[in-house]
Design a protein around this nucleic acid. Structure first.
Lengths: 194, 194
DNA sequence: ATTATTCTTGAATGCATATTCAATTAAGGA
DNA sequence: TCCTTAATTGAATATGCATTCAAGAATAAT
């Protein structure tokens, strides 16, 4: 017996970044061998093919985002304050020059959703699960009496999802705090307005 | 002398649709010859190469959208009613099964903005000009005393742009009126709220 | 009708790139 | 220490695709 030598998470995060910057089609196997340090044969042995590595990278992305989300909301503070911090964090990502600027899920869905049913299902499922996590935050806000009892958590979460998608897209053309901050502020205000 | 036989606008709209569905990378010259009815040589003669046809298609897209926009807002009705109709129209596109589901500008910017400076510039410029047109609508709304005099038209337009980007992305995962209509309604309400 | 000019045709070309594979290397059990 | 098993290596392969080009066809001017 002999174990794989490479660190799977490190390899997946390297691939993840490459896919986030270039998209699936414009990322070549050569790009991936350079980014991961793995030779073609090793990639094919461990992930079947380029798409297999892509899917594994998407799953790692979702895992990382879920962990990050849980960490941020695992406290007893006001749900609205947590949401405010969460938006600030997303805004930082939008402004950064690295790969996190884009969301791998929406980018992949937009690029391949029309042709690849499997990618469409995986990304939609992960985005849906994110939506549910946000709905729970609005449930908490309701329990904390920060928003009206008759609020629809599912709807508010969907509206926030829409706003974050929009923010990330605006950031593609206008990557300035001056533009993005007021948008994020109004978005949050419109969500918690009585 | 001999004139080109094909109808340029028809060819560009066919190419436009193909690019909207598949993106640039996943659209092959074979797809384009099939969609346009033109042979490779004719395409290269008229548009230099695949990217040349792509840029021409983007320009046609912008032209068509601008015409459509002008037509919808060229009347003396309330600017808010016009905006409402405009959103309803976008919602219809989101729900349709054809290519108009996606916005060619944002899709292209997301796919190629990172690698291709020229595509980035063109798409950003067109999106910016759309933003300005929307700002004018809010100026009209101000003149009609439908929104407060101290409103920032530029900001409101930017917020609407963000919302529409978001709506189109939500439509990728949830292409239902039941989901999209309330989002669009709240978006408009949040824009004209006193 | 003739000719010059330009467009059209579609097979041929060359290149980029995903994938394979046989040889090599290393690990762990007997 | 030896042997079995599995991972690694990177050159070779095969394929798909953008692009070219030379021959043919159509147009308009003379």
């Amino acid at each position: 017996m002999r174990h794989a030598e490479f660190d799977r998470e490190r390899v997946l995060r390297a691939a993840m970044c490459t896919f986030m910057v270039n998209g699936f089609s414009k990322t070549s196997m050569q790009d991936l061998t350079k980014a991961t340090g793995l030779h073609p044969g090793s990639i094919y042995c461990a992930f079947d093919n380029k798409k297999g590595l892509f899917i594994a990278a998407i799953e790692q992305y979702q895992q990382d985002r879920t962990d990050q989300f849980k960490q941020l909301f695992a406290n007893d503070r006001s749900a609205v304050d947590n949401l405010s911090d969460y938006l600030a964090q997303i805004l930082q990502e939008c402004l950064s020059c690295d790969a996190t600027k884009a969301c791998l899920l929406t980018k992949s869905l937009s690029e391949m959703g029309e042709q690849d049913e499997q990618i469409k299902q995986i990304t939609c499922q992960f985005l849906q699960s994110w939506h549910q996590s946000l709905a729970q935050v609005f449930d908490t806000a309701k329990a904390q009496q920060l928003i009206p009892q008759e609020s629809d958590s599912q709807f508010l979460a969907q509206y926030l999802v829409m706003g974050i998608y929009g923010l990330r897209t605006v950031a593609n053309t206008q990557p300035n705090v001056e533009v993005l901050q007021p948008l994020a502020d109004k978005l949050l205000a419109d969500l918690i307005r009585q």
